[in-house]
């Protein structure tokens, strides 16, 4: 499953066609959901499938198809882009490797027990009732803040989309009137 997730993610960043990379990201999310399930986080697996694979990926696919980006992968000239990428590639790989090595170092210096308790995994680390109890007691304020954030984001998205349309209408009007 981990191998599947890594392969899918590699396809995500290397595919030329945005639709292909969205679909492989979907595959990566499904692999991660199975990993969550195997690790004992049943609710997180369900949330991952419902929210990420169900909602966010559909949104991405919808926008890609709305903007008709299906086969025009990237806009600048091919030679130009190849040069740019060739110059940028070593730096990027170095950054990626540095992030990875730093994390490995962090993992190696950890002193805590790495083996998970089998009984814990069997019962599930995150029982839904435990999660709910914690979320509505200790984490009540972040929960409310998150709901306000969602409301604000909804309003922001509506305003962004709407302003674009009125501007477009205004542009066409000014073109017509003179």
């Amino acid at each position: 499953m981990s191998v599947g997730a890594i392969l899918c993610s590699l396809v995500v960043v290397s595919a030329r066609n945005p639709v292909v990379s969205v679909l492989s990201l979907l595959g990566s999310f499904v692999c991660l959901a199975v990993i969550y399930l195997l690790a004992g986080f049943q609710f997180m697996a369900a949330a991952q499938l419902l929210v990420y694979a169900g909602a966010i990926m559909v949104l991405f696919l919808f926008v890609i198809m709305l903007l008709n980006l299906g086969n025009s992968a990237e806009e600048s000239g091919p030679l130009d882009r190849a040069l740019l990428r060739a110059r940028r590639m070593p730096v990027v790989l170095a950054i990626g490797a540095a992030v990875f090595l730093l994390t490995l170092f962090g993992i190696e210096t950890q002193q805590t027990v790495m083996a998970a308790d089998p009984e814990l995994v069997e019962r599930g680390v995150s029982s839904l009732s435990g999660l709910a109890e914690l979320m509505f007691s200790t984490y009540l304020l972040p929960f409310e803040a998150a709901s306000v954030l969602l409301l604000a984001a909804t309003i922001a998205v509506i305003v962004l989309a709407k302003r674009g349309r009125t501007q477009l209408v205004a542009d066409t009007r000014t073109e017509v009137t003179p």
Binding site: V12, P18, V63, I64, L69, E74, S76, M89, F100
Partner: peptide, 22 residues
């Protein structure tokens, strides 16, 4: 380890791709 690898791949993609959706 898996999280580290995925994060590194994401960082690479973030810097390499020029398409804003990517």
């Amino acid at each position: 380890f898996l999280a580290a690898i995925l994060f590194a791949i994401g960082v690479c993609g973030f810097f390499v791709r020029r398409n804003s959706i990517m």
